[in-house]
Design a protein around this nucleic acid. Structure first.
Lengths: 211, 211
DNA sequence: TTTTACCAGTGATATAAGTCACTGTATCAG
DNA sequence: CTGATACAGTGACTTATATCACTGGTAAAA
């Protein structure tokens, strides 16, 4: 029951019967930072819930472009793996741990069955869909309507919120990749932001002063 | 029972009990082309299923920008209104009929209740989510990774598939709006496509020759 | 018929972003 | 200590897209 209890802590909405069911049917995994959980084109057989750590979900096309979508924090579930249920589609989605993480893997068959059985699971899935949808729309907005400087600000704010720290440990190169831009462009824009006192640039990290 | 039967025709997956339930709880609406079904910031109390016609779903920000997301054809449901269940969010989504349409409005309370009661409804909702998610991701891809010429091709192909006709009745101005570009740019790109024999440009419509 | 409104074509120019080439500077391995 | 490597800064240039200003044509309204 130790497992069920730790789920309860991160997912307070879940009813007891559900967490016990999970103890039976789901798998608990400890995963080090930097591990790829999902590769584009991969066949998906289970959905995941994040107990601890941080998982980055991003989009990749065939030509080496990539694109940040959102983070999964403790208490979050992956809407994408839920939709991939049919297992047919080769959605170009990748997921990677950015911190050492604890993940619950739920087989997709169970996921469907639980929907009828456990109200709290049903609500969780629906809420997950809704939140990710909303987040995706916001991302789409920023790409479609905003210039790179605004997108960069948006990106930093998001990291700040997710990490809960004003110091964001990331290189310009990484940002460029996630925004599908180039390092030089990001460097220059960051410099402008620094001049306006919005951030402080250090080697290997960016400190948020005022956004 | 006429109503239930016509639903059955467009949504062959629905079980009889469900279509009869709909006859009781849902509202049937005839809506002329060009009607706004959803305004950004509007409070949403029901989800909709398209029986006939064509509905355009698009994104709008505050500054007059808009952005095409997808079409709803007969047999489709609106994933967005399903997610908006909580009615809290003011998602900047707009929907408009592009043809005279017949729509079923399902109160959001029912929608939730039916999930347990009718398997076919459950599958329909899940499939709707999945399809829209996928479509949204494709849109995001094209905006993030592609240049305007590729996006334009993608856009025309999509319309071709949806409309089922090689003649797409649309002005350059409208395309520009939906791709968040400008008329002149679209005109020039279309001209290039015409030179390569991919399309034929007419006044008020574009004819697809080879995509 | 005349007028008005909308659609489309096009050159000139402006701007944001991407690319290339190079420099300096920390950090780490040998 | 010495290369080697990755991060970061920067000027010069290219390219895609946006914007401006104008033209002409068609179609419907007056």
């Amino acid at each position: 029951m130790v497992f069920a209890e730790s789920i309860q802590k991160k997912f307070p909405g879940f009813e007891a019967a559900l967490t016990e069911q999970m103890e039976l049917d789901a798998k608990f995994r400890q995963i080090p930072a930097g591990t790829e959980l999902m590769r584009p084109g991969q066949f998906i057989r289970s959905t995941m819930l994040v107990l601890d750590g941080l998982v980055k979900v991003y989009r990749e096309d065939g030509e080496g472009n990539e694109f940040f979508m959102y983070y999964l924090k403790p208490g979050d579930g992956c809407a994408l793996s839920m939709t991939c249920m049919v297992g047919q589609e080769t959605s170009n989605i990748a997921a990677k741990t950015v911190q050492d993480s604890e993940i619950i893997m739920v087989p997709l068959e169970k996921m469907d069955a639980w929907m009828n059985q456990y109200k709290s699971w049903y609500h969780f899935v629906v809420k997950t869909y809704r939140d990710r949808f909303e987040e995706l729309l916001q991302t789409l907005d920023s790409v479609a309507f905003r210039n790179m400087d605004e997108r960069l600000e948006f990106y930093l704010k998001r990291h700040y919120k997710t990490l809960g720290s004003k110091i964001i440990p990331i290189t310009h190169q990484e940002i460029a990749q996630e925004l599908n831009s180039s390092r030089e462009v990001i460097s220059r824009l960051l410099k402008k932001m620094a001049e306006r006192g919005k951030v402080k640039l250090n080697r290997y990290n960016i400190e948020i002063l005022d956004l």
